[in-house]
Every structure is written in C-alpha cells, then in structure tokens.
Write a protein that binds this DNA or RNA. Sequence first.
DNA 1: CATAATCCGTAGCCATTGCTACATTTATAC
DNA 2: GTATAAATGTAGCAATGGCTACGGATTATG
Lengths: 141, 141
Amino acid sequence: MKKKRVQEKIKARSVPFSQTRSRHASETAEDYVEAVLDLIDEKGECRVLDLSRFFNVSHVTVSRIVKRLNDADLLYTQPYKPIELTDKGYKLAKKSKKRHEIVLAFLIKLGVDKANAEIDSEGIEHHVSPSTLDAMKKFLK
Amino acid sequence: MKKKRVQEKIKARSVPFSQTRSRHASETAEDYVEAVLDLIDEKGECRVLDLSRFFNVSHVTVSRIVKRLNDADLLYTQPYKPIELTDKGYKLAKKSKKRHEIVLAFLIKLGVDKANAEIDSEGIEHHVSPSTLDAMKKFLK
DNA sequence: CATAATCCGTAGCCATTGCTACATTTATAC
DNA sequence: GTATAAATGTAGCAATGGCTACGGATTATG
Ligand SMILES: [Mn+2]
Ligand SMILES: [Mn+2]
Ligand SMILES: [Mn+2]
Ligand SMILES: [Mn+2]
C-alpha cells in the first residue's frame, strides 16, 4: 500500500483519543459542580475545605479550580464565603449527577460489588456517550 | 451531628476520586504501549510520527512522552530510530489491549453502535477494575 | 553525490493540577 | 474584647501534556 494511505489510516484512528482528551478537559468541572450540589444538599453549605476533603486534595488546589469555574460562570464565589452554583452550574450538576447515578446503578446490576462500582463509575461517567447511556438505561429496565 | 463526624463522612467519599486520579496517571503509558504494539504489528515499525498521527498530537508531545516511558523501562528508544517495547512494556501492552478489547466488545453487545463504542471504550478501559472486567466477561458469555 | 523531502530533537511557551509554606481573615472560646 | 483556632488566600515550585518555531539528521530522488 502507498505510504500516504497508511498514514491516513493511522490518522483515522485518532478520533477516540481526541474525544477522550476533550472529555477529560470537562471532567473537573462536572465533578466539582456535582460535589457542590451534594455538599449544599447534605451540609447546608459548601466551603473550600469541604471540597478539599471531598476530593482529598489541598485547599489550594480547590481554591484555584473554584476561581476558574467562577470565571466560567458555573459557580459563584466570594472570598471567605460559601460556594454556590449558578444556573448554568446547577444544570450541569443535575445532568452529571443523573448520568453518574445511571452508570453506578448499571455497574451494580451488572454484578459489580458496590465498592468497586463506586470507584469505577467515578471515572467511567465522563466517558459515556448518549448512545452508551441509552444502552445502560435499557439494560436497567 | 458533630462537626468532626461530618468532616470524616465527607472525607470517606474521596476514595473514588483518588483512585480515578491514579488511573489517569497510568493512562498515557497504557495507551502508548498499546499503540506501539499495534503499529509494529501493522506497519512493521513504530516511529515518533506514527504515534503523532495515531494520537493526533504534535511530534514534540510524543517525543517527550516516549522519553519518559523509556526512562520508566516500558519502551526502548534511540534518536532517529524506531521505537520498540521492553518486556515490561510488552506485558503492559498485551494486558491493556486485552482489557480494551473486552470493554469494546462489551459495549457493542450492550447495543452501542460501533463508532460510539470505539470512542467510549478508549476512555472507559482505564477505569475498569478487575471486578468490573469480570462482570463484563460474564455478560459476553 | 547533491539536493530536496522527511523525520526528529530542542528551546521555550501555556494551561492544568498537584504540593508546601506563609499571610490574612473570620469564627470560636474564654 | 482579646486570644486562639479555623478557614481561606497568596506565593512559588513540580510534573504532565498541549503547542509553534527552528535546526539538525536521515532518507529519498534525480
Ligand atoms: Mn460524578
Ligand atoms: Mn467523576
Ligand atoms: Mn485509552
Ligand atoms: Mn478518564
């Protein structure tokens, strides 16, 4: 086969990797808004240190990310004040949480023990296309 | 509930995130050795530019990562020479490829179209515990 | 063998996400 | 109210993975 053809064939396989990188780029935002939603729900408010404990990272890491998500209009933060979700952040949180719950329930129904299902679903949720999510929903019914 | 108890409860939920970060840290190595294995198999040899096309990133990004994986004893590289796998790299590649194939076959059997299954499995493969992999294997039988 | 094309390395930039150390603000306790 | 504790912010470092620009090495072409 011609060299060019071989190269094009190789390049054609790059799509899943580009997509995976793109999904990883949105992962932090999704996990953070979901965490803020949960923490407000369970604790009444969400603080930097709550997120720091929730993710097991330093408060500095959280503080920087929260600032970026504030700039992205996903949440609202003021110095030394609790963190709140914007409308946009709330919608993303609800959608991410729903998807996460489906993935978790799916794994459990598939026969995975709860501990592993919780661990695996935390990563898998960000790599599930609408098509795959549909297939999981059908399996759950 | 006491404040301390609440904080411990929050901290307890951090395990999946720590695990997910750890898995993302091994993802590049897994994808690269798998790619080297495939490219040698299909093209006869694996070059920096092959990987650059395969992943759709610049040759500089590939070159830096290849150097790190060389230091980690996963592959063997010399300037301007083709890239080869070490024993350790070959073993990791085989294992990763096997797991990837199972995840892909699983998604297809679940009813996901091939294009989405290929995209999603590229990310999901790195978040599948032995427990989940077993469940997928059982489902395939 | 000389020239052109291709491949690859290096320098240097940016963004993200992890960290420790230290400063400042806010809340709690006395 | 003041001292202490807790929470948060800031400075600055490292690793990783993107990039462009440029130059040197290798290979192909004539
Ligand atoms: Mn989640
Ligand atoms: Mn997650
Ligand atoms: Mn992958
Ligand atoms: Mn992932």
